[in-house]
């Protein structure tokens, strides 16, 4: 298995106005190369939540899309910190540490990581004060 496509996108801290842009671009790329709408939608939701997390909680970061010759789709969302102190809590639906500003905009439902986990076929997360890395894989479901 080898990677036949790779692209990295930047996400800036507090850039609420552009939240969803990377997700939209990735979804378009996937549809263009013929990935099913069901898988494209799941990837798009995961990317959107990862973008929002970087904008609200992190000091920005990058999202990389990789497609392998066997059709596997991999997303790596890597931010610049400050890290998630308790990953289990962060994975609990409804748990949020979002700011008042974020909440007023309708963010901070505490559904970000749970939505990502539900939509990905493989979900791996690592976090330290230096940053959080999400490694996700997607494939067609029966």
């Amino acid at each position: 298995m080898s990677v036949i496509y790779q692209k990295t996108y930047n996400v800036e801290k507090d850039d609420y106005a552009n939240a969803g842009l990377v997700s939209s671009l990735i979804k378009q790329s996937l549809r263009t190369i013929g990935v099913s709408s069901a898988v494209s939608r799941r990837v798009a939701v995961a990317v959107y939540e990862a973008e929002i997390n970087m904008i609200i909680h992190a000091y920005g970061g990058t999202i990389t899309l990789e497609i392998s010759d066997d059709g596997a789709i991999r997303l790596i969302a890597s931010d610049l910190g400050p890290g998630i102190p308790d990953i289990q809590k962060a994975l609990t639906p409804g748990f949020s540490t979002a700011s008042k500003k974020a909440m007023e905009l309708g963010f901070g439902a505490g559904m970000g990581l749970p939505n990502i986990k539900r939509n990905a076929d493989e979900f791996h997360i690592e976090s330290s004060p230096a940053g959080t890395v999400l490694d996700l894989k997607f494939q067609e479901r029966e």
Partner: peptide
Amino acid sequence: LLSWVMGNGQPEQAWITVQSHLNVIA
């Protein structure tokens, strides 16, 4: 709540909200 909508909304639905900022378009 945008993540709630992202997690539970379905294609072809009409979405009723009181949020009016840029992210609702996304």
